[in-house]
Design a protein around this nucleic acid. Structure first.
Lengths: 230, 230
DNA sequence: GCGCCGCATTGACTTAGGTCAAAAAAACAA
DNA sequence: TTGTTTTTTTGACCTAAGTCAATGCGGCGC
């Protein structure tokens, strides 16, 4: 029974972590498996929000397009992370586009079934409230970064965050091409490249392809704080 | 009984609109009145989130401070609007600062009482899920604006939004000083001032103090779309 | 091996928008 | 009114970061 895998995934997802088994099973029952090939569109900004997803395998990006067609990535979601849940409750449309980065698989939860389930189980709703709140908090940080800090500061903050996530504390490995990273930081590949060189020149980091050594943790922290490279 | 006023306010607030009277009364019972003088701090980023507020009179701003102390306003809330609700569910600290703009009054809802109430009434929780989702969507737009559009585009979008909110469709009146508006748009007063002149020179708008005539709706819309002033 | 394609880097150039400083205009209190 | 403070505007200047264009590099299929 491959359901075991999805049971585990749901029970460990941010959205539903900490729920009793019966609730997880109820969720499992209303979900559908959806597979996407590499670079496949999942939903478009403006589409009616008929349900939300939890990513199982691969990575999914949430992005906006500028009038000129330039793509700005808002989030990248890995396994266990939920996406597209906003319009399920507000009853409106998706506020951004979603597409797979790799070949990937998600669980889909149809809106009506979810709403019925939540009405019966307040605990699930409370849990979800907490999750949305967290995401809201992350956005607050994102806005702060975009409006108050310059690119080197954002990059430093990002590297430090990665080094916390990965265990090796003085070496991080990018799991995405630098061009995606640039978009994630709200800049362009050229600028990112120059800033990496600049930071290397100041012995803050050492770049070897996608692997980056953090040479001066203290300096990076300072840079992330003040947002400005000397 | 002045409670009537607060009953109405709660029942018309985004957060609790559409709830039956008994629930509104329950909410009224757990709330406390808090008064603030002009420019008074309400809570600080990092403070423990012991509850949330619904604004009654006056205006409240939510803002972040840059390392150099520059203030960037994330939201301005008027009567009936809830704020500070994020940490109530995430159980963490407030993600930004809050302060009154005018002398103002809010209703305060303590965390524990709210959580207990929601656990009993799933309908209230669903409503709040919708509100948090909406706010999340707003942030998505804010991030988009900050990263994809230039200041003139953001300003045009803001003016058009105001003209929708206020009824007069070709004239908007700022209810905040231009210096606050600058912060709200993620820029500084000098830049805002120059851009207003520039837009006036192109017959897009006509500025008289805080009152702004929108002369060329179509042009403004184009500017908000493309994000670039000719 | 070869050519090809997507990613990454580098250089020359342009510009939006920030800083600093000062003046002008409004708002407000005595 | 008059003086005082806050808001708004203007000018000179500087810098971060974007655009455009060329080149380098690495993997992959054949």
């Amino acid at each position: 029974m491959p359901n075991k895998k999805y049971f585990k995934l749901i029970s460990e997802s941010m959205l539903f972590a900490g729920l009793p088994d019966e609730h997880i099973n109820a969720l499992l029952l209303i979900s559908e498996i959806r597979d996407f090939e590499k670079n496949q569109l999942i939903f478009l900004e403006g589409d009616k929000g008929i349900g939300f997803y939890i990513n199982v395998d691969g990575r999914v990006k949430i992005f906006k397009l500028s009038p000129e067609g330039k793509e700005h990535i808002l989030h990248i979601f890995g396994p266990g992370e939920p996406y597209g849940e906003v319009p399920v409750f507000s009853g409106k449309t998706y506020p951004a586009n979603a597409a797979s980065i790799d070949a990937s698989r998600s669980l889909f939860f149809p809106r009506d079934a979810v709403v019925a389930l939540l009405a019966k189980n307040p605990a699930i709703a409370l849990n979800m409230l907490a999750v949305l709140s967290m995401r809201l908090r992350q956005f607050t940080v994102a806005v702060e970064n975009l409006s108050l800090k310059e690119v080197p500061g954002r990059l430093a903050a990002h590297l430090l965050m990665l080094s916390l996530e990965q265990e090796k504390k003085d070496r991080v490995v990018l799991n995405i091409p630098k061009t995606l990273l640039a978009s994630l930081l709200g800049t362009i590949p050229e600028t990112l490249s120059r800033i990496l060189s600049r930071m290397a020149a100041q012995n803050l980091i050492e770049v070897q392809g996608r692997s980056i050594r953090l040479l001066d943790l203290e300096g990076l922290r300072l840079l992330a704080e003040t947002g400005r490279l000397a």
